[in-house]
Simulated assay, not measured.
Amino acid sequence: MQNQFDPRSTTNSSGGVNTATVGVPRAARDAGLRSYMLSVYNYMASGVLLTGIVALLFAPYAQGVLLNQAGTGMSPLGWLITLSPLGFILAMNFGLHRMQTRTLQMLFWAFAAVMGLSMSTIFIAYTGTSIAQTFFAVAAGFAGLSLYGYTTKRDLSGMGTFLIMGVVGLLVAMLINLFLQSAAMMMAISAIGVLLFAGLTAYDTQKIKSMYAYVAGSDMMGKVVIMGALNLYLDFVNMFMFLLQFMGNRR
């Protein structure tokens, strides 16, 4: 899943950079940008932590709740829990300009908790060691890629368009493989998925950074922080899941 947002169209009447940043000393702008990005990372990391805690606590009950009696597929409740995060993402995107910041916060935490429920089955399918190894590998890779996106002077917007198209193609391939059940195709999808979301991590970081000039000092800033955290959360979790499928040791 990939979430996209762009509040620039509503930040001010002229569609340009927020006037709150005009005439502000560079040191103050840099300090504000660092505080803004730190807030994004704090939300993102807290969401990942909440997801992990919920997944770990719910894991002993996951097989009985999420899987059918034969253990070969999802139960109706399992499908509901699995698809619920998509509903939260749609609600946050379409309600971005109407909702209060506090409402978006509550939806973000609820989304992270439901994601934990839906991801709890990984503790059934994979060994704890491979889950931990994959998590730390993704965390290290994510940190490096996000740092690149933050510091690079290169415009990544063109690459972002290509990557988003790649994600759409990846979703189509995953749907096709639901019927084919090809192990080789699943491995290819997992490898490509890791690469796509690795690229999106850098792209989204640069995009979130660029938003600061448009929302600094406005009512949108808190909302953009939450939506930026959601974007990076999705990049991290998708990269983790695809890498786990690619290199995780099954039980």
Rank of each mutant, 00 (worst) to 15 (best):
V237F: 01
Q245H: 11
S35L: 04
A173G: 02
F123Y: 15
M119I: 03
Q2A: 07
V225Q: 15
L244D: 09
L178P: 02
L57P: 05
M247V: 14
L66A: 09
A183F: 01
M1V: 09
M119A: 07
R8Y: 05
P7E: 10
G15D: 10
G15F: 04
G166R: 03
A45Q: 06
Q181N: 05
L57N: 04
L171P: 00
I189K: 05
I124P: 05
G73D: 14
M37R: 06
G116H: 07
R29S: 03
L163V: 01
A183H: 06
G47I: 03
T201I: 02
D155W: 11
L180Y: 00
A191Y: 04
M106H: 09
F246P: 02
P76A: 02
N18T: 12
T51R: 11
V65F: 14
Y214M: 10
I89C: 05
G158N: 14
S146C: 12
F5P: 12
A31K: 11
N177E: 02
M106V: 07
A91E: 01
F246V: 03
Q69N: 12
T51Q: 15
L83S: 07
R98L: 03
Q63E: 13
L156Q: 13
A191N: 00
K223W: 02
V215H: 08
T152A: 09
S46G: 14
M74C: 01
S130L: 06
P60Q: 08
N42R: 14
N3A: 10
F123W: 12
M221G: 12
M119P: 01
P76V: 04
A91V: 10
G128R: 15
L180R: 03
Q100L: 06
R251M: 10
G64P: 08
L196W: 00
A198S: 13
I192L: 13
G158W: 10
T134L: 07
L243K: 12
A55S: 15
V40D: 09
G248I: 08
F58E: 08
K209Q: 14
V172F: 10
V65T: 15
L163W: 01
S46V: 14
L117E: 04
N231D: 15
N68A: 07
D155V: 13
F108W: 13
I226C: 10
G78C: 09
V168M: 09
N42Q: 11
Y61W: 12
I192V: 11
M211A: 05
T11S: 14
A27Q: 08
N249A: 12
L56R: 13
T82E: 11
G64S: 12
G169W: 01
A20M: 01
M241A: 07
Q69L: 13
R98A: 09
A140L: 14
V17K: 03
M165I: 13
T201K: 02
H97C: 00
A62E: 07
K223P: 11
V138L: 07
G160C: 10
A139H: 05
T72K: 06
L195D: 00
Q100G: 09
V17D: 02
L33N: 02
L117H: 04
V167Y: 01
Q181T: 04
A184D: 06
A45S: 12
Y41K: 12
L196N: 00
A59S: 15
R29I: 05
K207G: 06
Y43L: 14
G144Y: 03
R29G: 01
F246W: 15
T10D: 12
F246L: 15
G141Q: 03
